[in-house]
Design a protein around this nucleic acid. Sequence first.
DNA 1: GTCCGCTCCTTTTTT
DNA 2: AGGAGCGGAC
Length: 726
Amino acid sequence: MNTHHTADYLTSLNPEQRLAVETTEGPLLVLAGAGTGKTRVLTTRFAHILLTNRAKPWQILAVTFTNKAAQEMYKRIENMIDMPMSNLWLGTFHALCTRMLRRHANYVGLTPNFTILDTDDQIRLLKQVIEPWKIDIKRWPLAGLLGEIQRWKDRGLTPQHITPAEDTNFADGHARAIYEAYQTRLLQLNACDFGDLMLHVTEILRLNPDILAQYHTLFRYILVDEYQDTNTIQYLWLRLLAQRQQEQTNICCVGDDDQSIYAWRGAEVKNILRFEKDFPNANIVRLERNYRSTSHILGAATKLVAHNNERLSKTLCSGLVDSDTSIGEKVAVIHVYDSDIEAEFICQQITLFQKQGYSLAEMAILVRAGFQTRSFEEYLVQRGLPYRIIGGTRFYERAEIRDVLAYFRVLIQPADDLAFERIVNVPKRGIGATTLQKIRTTARTINAPLMTTIQHMLDNGTLNKRIGEPLRDLLKLLSDTRDILRDKGHIIGAEHLLEASHYLDMWRQDRSAEAEGRIDNIMELLHAMEEFTDIESFLEHVALVTEKDTPDQEEYLSIMTLHRAKGLEFDIVFLPGWEDGLFPSQHALNRGETKALEEERRLAYVGITRARKQVMIFHANRRRIYTHWQNSIPSRFLKELPEKHVTYRNLNNCLNIQHIQQNDNSDQTSNQTVLIKHSSHFQLGDYVCHNRFGTGVILSIDREHIEVAFETIGTKRIVSSYIKKL
DNA sequence: GTCCGCTCCTTTTTT
DNA sequence: AGGAGCGGAC
């Protein structure tokens, strides 16, 4: 390489980052800890390959998990280089596979315009497929079956691969057969679910060396983001594309085993652990300098995750120099009486931080489970703090949006039976389950799509007037709309469809509170469609996207799950609900395996490392869960936090926020750190034993008074001399 | 076919 | 609390 002049984009990198960027040839694994500049390395590497003329833009395969990550990467690369980037192979696993599958669809019995099903379609299809088995759906929920099939697909297993021994989780071993029937139906419908996108393409590449060779020639460099999250089928796909006979492979995978939090949906940390085996003489670069968090935050997070056994060795240290930031505040662990106080106190703290000059956009509340968000809303509204719950019901999952998209689908793909079934009686046209079943049966015998079947039935007069009339109208409406689409464009066509079908009227007449919002959503959808030239390309886009990107017009506080927070950062992070059974989750505790618990611990690590300046962790004695109150004990993770980076505050005796404020003023100096010293060697979360009450866990410490949750008799306040550590 | 009210359930999420 | 599924009334 020409070294006489070092490019600007390289000089701003630290030595390890630079090594990761400049080691372009051969297999490379980049282990990038939280906040070590992972995205920067990935994008700089991409730009570097282009700028040094190692490859043309379309010769680089760059894979991410989310659309957001792909967009982010694209934007950053675009900013770094000044050349047209056409035909980029930069996208999510699924988007890239869709592109490949449309090219080679015929190899697996599909046509290039196949439909991609969403979860809703999948469930409805399964419901039909499962019919002959007469399975008690109450005992065996369909979601479980779908999960089972998805996990098989994640592992690259087609029905033929599944042995009876592996088919025991659903309805006493019928899942394999149902899976097979489901796949048959998908092909009949010319449709794919998300798993199929990966599965079909991998199958095509595996069985057709000529096709694989084309891609080998095409892709000179492969970049993979979040490698720790890849599942088996994604791994197999990558390995096929990466392992060539003759030349070495220029594959670069970036990941962090400590941030692997998706094993429950099929991700295999193994993939990252065995990289060196898969690609002999692979280089490994570790990015260990963290440029995000204060040393207290970093210290707390790394000590916590160090309790995990299954990890690649990696030591995160601060890359910030002292002048960048002070050592900062210690991580605060705050004990509150209940979840209401927790919510109220956090909202109060947010106001306080605002007064100190922090913007709402730089603060986040990160929860373990979705239901926790509710308690915050009330108090935030009360204080007039703008907030957003990230990832509640997603835009494209709303019923009205799905309805409208289904209307579009039947317009474009008259053979899309699932879409047709969704809209045939919305708004009500008097077509019920019985009629639909009759049509389905006929369709099956003449082997035709539902709409064609209906046309037949109308022609031979098989349908009575009461049913036939509205169906005839619907078919007429659809064919009329196709004409309008052709003559006047997709926006006019879409508007006509939604008016003439009376779909919009249905909501206009709806008196419920949400109806107006639904109409707004539909208008937004139509607006989003303007960026596309036709409905087909819009549907293609929508099938692979869950979120609609709205630019932020105002600053707001973010509330989201820990999973959703991965990859983000904030100045101040609130982590409520650190109690056994919630975090770590009851499911993880029930399983009793270290594996599940270690994933929860990594989630805790992800949570803490989101923060730049301050972390506040909360645990409550009791928590409102839906309707009832549940007593809880502190999370076992709390005692894994290193004392020197943590400060404890006990607000357990405060039943309202006024009390907390008073205590704040009077207790300024004698906070919990001091209290803990008074009460000898006891710590929050310690397991203790009492002569009469048995064993329990310490909930709070107030000098010599210690509150213990006993296993048998509940919570009691005890003087410390009567209990001893287990 | 449609509507109403009863029961049951509730981790995490992307595509 | 809120949604989904189901059975029964009309």
